[in-house]
Amino acid sequence: MIEELIISGRMNPEIDPHLHAWPWYVPTDLFLAALVAGILIFSAFLTLHGRENEFPAAVKRAPILAPFLLGIALLLLFLDLSHKLYFWQLYTNIRWTSPLSWGAWTYLFLTPLAFIWAAIHIKTAFPNWTWPYKWIDTFIESLKGYRIWFAWAILGLSLTLGMYTGILLSAFNARPIWNSAIIGPLFLTSGLTSATAFILLNCPKGSNEKKLFCTVSLISLGVQTFLMIHLVMGYLSSDLAQVKAADLFLGGEFTTLFWILIVALGTLIPAYLHILYLKNIKIPVIVPSILIILGGFFLRYILVEAGQISHW
């Protein structure tokens, strides 16, 4: 047994007694970014397959909110900086070894595209919508001709953004909970799952789109569960630091939160409700949708918190 004590009285804020450098801003930013990535992936993917009219909620309605959610995510990222006036330094460097750097650049390119994408589709969501100036209307109409190009760019950037939200954490070898290659695909899948829930909230009652997205949501929840099982298996089959880190979810201080908020309320119950809905049992889709979205948020919140506590 080894017991280590700092006898010179170190109590650096945010570092001692354990790391707490990233407060709720960071998991919320990661969640919103992944949600937006998921929404835009579905919208762009269906556009590229020419199925815009079959899936109006996914392609046209859901992306309307995407740029605003992305704006909130960027604001939270900014609020988390402790040297805020120097934030522009992010855009004077391209650092390929830094996930935060390519995340920042992805935000920079995706945000205007998300606004353009929303502007292109706003008249479908709000048929009475009119732009204050005629030239804006003409400009937006002219952009519609390039929507396939926009869709390709949005698809690529959204996949990068969704993956980035996980890779940001998994790049930190110093924190055993985060040091897993599965976190990137897990966060991307979770973003897609949250996006299906968001799209379901936008689907008209009894539409075919609603049924189809219920199925997609169910499949996505299945993939997410598969990845979560492998994440825990990865911890348990790794070195002592990761085995101890896994204890945080398997008997340690995050056990209740992890199993109730993420596994039960965020995954199993909504999956069960989706199955009931697909069997034509009357289920208000708002319930599983909200549970999935909250589950996606808590997945990131708990992993960010637990990661900061875990150490070598």
Partner: peptide, 28 residues
């Protein structure tokens, strides 16, 4: 370099020795 640091705290999270901290002026 304090003039280049934005205070994102990624370096703090990446250090297995917990050797860094945020200076009261905002930089690491």
């Amino acid at each position: 370099d304090p003039d280049q640091c934005i205070g994102c705290k990624a370096c703090i999270a990446s250090c297995p020795y917990d050797a860094r901290f945020v200076h009261p002026e905002g930089y690491v």
